[in-house]
C-alpha cells in the first residue's frame, strides 16, 4: 500500500513530506514508543495518538517512512521540522486509532508482527 493510499483511506491531511508513492509494507499502532521499538520491520508506518518529538525519533530509528497522527492531532512546528530533517512523511487523520488501524488492516496492510517473521 502506498502512503497516498493510506492518506485516501484515512481522509488524512499531509502535514509534511513528499514522495507519497513510496510503498508501506506494514504498520504499527501504539502510544508506547518502546513497544514500537521492540519489533523492526522494513518500510513501515506508525499510527499514534501521541504527539511529541520522540514519536518522530522513534520512527526514524526504526527506518519507518510515515507517521500518522490520529484524531486530528496536529504536531507543532518543532516536530514538523524534525520530520522534515529525517525525510519522514507525516499525516493527520480525523479517525480514531482503532478505526484507522482497522481500515488499513482490512485493506490489506498487515501488522508489524505478521510479515517476514
Amino acid at each position: 500500500m502506498t502512503i497516498n493510499e493510506i492518506k485516501q483511506l484515512l481522509d488524512a491531511e499531509v502535514i509534511c513530506g513528499d514522495n507519497l508513492e513510496r510503498e508501506v509494507l506494514s504498520a504499527c499502532g501504539s502510544d508506547m514508543m518502546s513497544d514500537v521499538l521492540a519489533y523492526v520491520k522494513d518500510q513501515a508506518a506508525l499510527l499514534t495518538g501521541l504527539v511529541n518529538a520522540q514519536v518522530i525519533r522513534t520512527a526514524e530509528m526504526m527506518d519507518m517512512i510515515a507517521v500518522v497522527f490520529v484524531r486530528s492531532k496536529k504536531p507543532g512546528q518543532d516536530i514538523i521540522e524534525l520530520a522534515r530533517e529525517s525525510g519522514m512523511v507525516v499525516l493527520a487523520t480525523p479517525k480514531r486509532m482503532y478505526e484507522a488501524c482497522g481500515i488499513l488492516y482490512s485493506n490489506g496492510l498487515k501488522g508489524n508482527g505478521e510479515i517476514n517473521e
Partner: peptide, 16 residues
C-alpha cells in the same frame, strides 16, 4: 508514560 516511555521495555530492547 504519558510521553510514550516507561513501559519497562527499554533495557530488554537494548539487549535484543
Amino acid at each position: 508514560r504519558s510521553l510514550g516511555f516507561g513501559a519497562g521495555m527499554g533495557l530488554p530492547n537494548m539487549k535484543r
